[in-house]
């Protein structure tokens, strides 16, 4: 049971949250002119690193705010938590 440090509420148990998948996926600014491949990448293609993963979490049963988490997908260590819109931090072991 992960203990996730919500930047607004503090550390809370995993069951209060929902994971929203990879962070920093950018919706193409001009969808009209985006190619099918660009649109595919936006809709479907995701990073799936073995190691540090930047992902979105929502404190669904709490403040309901979205934020970003850097988590290790093998050890489940939470390496950083940062707000929406912020750039991913330098993390690693």
């Amino acid at each position: 049971m992960l203990l996730i440090p919500c930047p607004h509420c503090g550390p809370r148990a995993e069951v209060e949250f929902r994971c929203g998948g990879e962070a920093h996926v950018v919706r193409p600014a001009e969808p009209e002119s985006a190619s099918d491949e660009v649109w595919r990448d936006y809709l479907f293609v995701r990073k799936s690193p073995k190691g540090v993963h930047f992902e979105r979490w929502n404190h669904a049963h709490g403040c309901q705010r979205w934020f970003n988490v850097a988590r290790d997908t093998v050890s489940d260590e939470i390496l950083a938590v940062y707000r929406m819109g912020e750039a991913p931090p330098e993390v690693g072991r």
Binding site: R18, G20, R27, R56, N58, A60, Q64, R65, W66, M84
Partner: peptide, 10 residues
Amino acid sequence: AWLEDLLQTE
């Protein structure tokens, strides 16, 4: 939940 997601993140 989805609308909230769009507002907060997109």
